[in-house]
């Protein structure tokens, strides 16, 4: 079992913070009160979750549209399977790629496996990023597309239902 220990208190911490931290001077004291533990224990558990990767980070998540990033392209690439991991690492290391993943194909409709998100305040900047990825992949680019997002239909954090224990 590789899943880190996740007990009922951790679960209550996730439930209490998944909508965000309260914007008050002592937010952790407030969350600790809701969870029913003291603040020191809450801070220790949050540190542990951050250390083992259950929390990626604590901070602000901007709406990138509101910051002017109107051109958000999901670039998708058909690359040779044998080279996909090495290529994914190279593309993921590019400074303008925010997310990079390998995903399964759905032939014949969807031959693309390597996904890389690029963003720009104008379309040309975003397309220049796509060109840079294409140059990096060279002959390993067997075909690609850019899917610009036209609208956010929903965006929330991770949701645990409050109903029952795991």
């Amino acid at each position: 079992m590789t899943t880190p220990p996740f007990d009922e208190i951790d679960r209550r911490i996730v439930l209490a913070t998944q909508e965000g931290l309260p914007l008050v001077p002592a937010p952790y004291a407030e969350v600790a009160r809701q969870v029913g533990i003291d603040e020191a224990e809450l801070l220790e558990r949050l540190r542990r979750m951050q250390g083992d990767g259950r929390i990626r980070r604590i901070g602000a998540v901007p709406n990138h549209y509101a910051l002017g990033y109107r051109f958000n392209g999901m670039t998708v690439w058909d690359v040779p399977d044998a080279r996909a991991r090495a290529l994914g690492r190279a593309v993921g290391a590019l400074p303008f790629v925010s997310h990079c993943y390998l995903r399964p194909r759905h032939p014949p409709d969807w031959p693309y496996t390597l996904f890389a998100m690029v963003h720009g305040r104008d379309r040309d900047t975003a397309l220049a990023h796509v060109e840079a990825i294409a140059r990096l992949l060279g002959a390993d680019d067997l075909g690609h597309q850019v899917l610009f997002s036209s609208r956010i239909l929903k965006k929330t954090g991770l949701r645990l239902s409050g109903g029952h224990g795991a």
């Binding site: 914007l23 259950r54 929390i55 990626r56 604590i58 602000a60 998540v61 709406n63 954090g157």
Partner: peptide
């Protein structure tokens, strides 16, 4: 300022970003 940025949806969230898979999800 943070309350205003949240209310205006310039920030979609403020707090821990959980890794669903690391939580066993």
């Amino acid at each position: 300022r943070l309350r205003r940025l949240r209310a205006d949806n310039v920030l979609t969230r403020f707090g821990p970003l959980f890794n669903a898979e690391a939580l066993g999800g």
